[in-house]
């Protein structure tokens, strides 16, 4: 694992790429610092407010950082070196993941200095500040694991970047989308039907078997229909709560803005990270069999 990590770090930092990502995150957060913390209209000592602006950095950093992770190896056939070396698939995935995590970790470590600096000039609530930085870092960790997974699915960096960008963007916009969604059982029914159709396509593509796809979609659709006809009130809030479950930036905002350190959010970020790392390993394993 350490040799994969070293290799990734060497490639990230032998050019400018790694430095640019770190600089970008510092600049984006820095701009919000100028507005919220350093003079100006607000002059607040809460670093977490600036950090909440810094979430926009992820929209660029995560897709571009993760797009090359596996896609580039597949395209240039260097995966043949990795997969024929005496290292396990999990080590390969973890080595790559930790290298990308380092790129996001360096600015987060630097952020840790800011509240201390502020404390020299005003009163700082260290607990919320550091809890905020940790949540911000864990969100990044989660998004990178998703990006890494997407990168294992394709040999095109562009496709990987676009899909990951769309995922991060959806996460960012989800809170606005939720407010637009109608809370009616019929709207839920329509959306769940659409999801069943998407599921069917996905299963078809992955297993190349129509019966499996039809069964998967049919079970979901039947369940939704049964609920709709038996007790349609259940469906009224189903859609918004489902969307709320993936509104990751909104969860972070709860910690950063409201100062409510909700442990379930941390747990959520970590579990999704583990899930996608696991999926990445499985996705690479699967490629050997196809």
């Amino acid at each position: 694992m350490s040799s994969i990590y070293k290799k990734e770090m060497k490639i990230l930092f032998s050019g400018m790429m790694g430095f640019i990502f770190i600089a970008l995150m510092l600049v984006v957060v820095g701009i919000f610092m100028r507005v919220y913390n350093l003079g100006g209209a607000y002059s607040l000592s809460n670093f977490e407010y600036s950090l909440n602006g810094g979430i926009w950095a992820y929209l660029v950093v995560v897709p571009v950082l993760t797009m090359r992770a596996m896609a580039e190896e597949t395209r240039s056939r260097t995966d043949q070196l990795l997969f024929t070396s005496p290292v396990s698939m999990a080590e390969i995935v973890l080595g790559k993941y930790l290298a990308m995590l380092t790129v996001v970790g360096v600015p987060c470590l630097l952020f840790c200095l800011y509240p201390m600096l502020y404390s020299a000039y005003g009163e700082v609530n260290f607990a919320t500040a550091y809890a905020g930085i940790l949540a911000y870092f864990l969100l990044g960790a989660m998004l990178i694991s998703i990006g890494l997974f997407v990168s294992t699915l394709t040999d095109s960096q562009i496709i990987a970047a676009v899909i990951t960008f769309a995922v991060v963007l959806m996460g960012l916009l989800m809170s606005s989308i939720i407010s637009l969604v109608e809370s009616s059982s019929f709207a839920s029914l329509a959306v769940f039907t659409a999801i069943a159709a998407l599921l069917m396509l996905l299963v078809k593509i992955m297993t190349k078997s129509w019966p499996a796809a039809l069964i998967a979609a049919g079970v979901l659709e039947a369940a939704v229909l049964v609920i709709f006809f038996v007790d349609s009130t259940i469906l009224e809030t189903a859609l918004t709560s489902m969307l709320g479950a993936v509104a990751v930036f909104q969860m972070l905002e709860g910690i950063l803005y409201d100062g409510l350190v909700d442990l379930t959010v941390y747990f959520y970020f970590i579990s999704v990270t583990v899930l996608f790392l696991f999926l990445s390993v499985q996705s690479l394993e699967k490629r050997r069999w196809s």
Binding site: I11, S76, R77
Partner: peptide
């Protein structure tokens, strides 16, 4: 392998 698995930036 047929195509040497090289990292061009190293």
């Amino acid at each position: 392998p047929e195509q040497p698995p090289l990292y061009q930036e190293l």
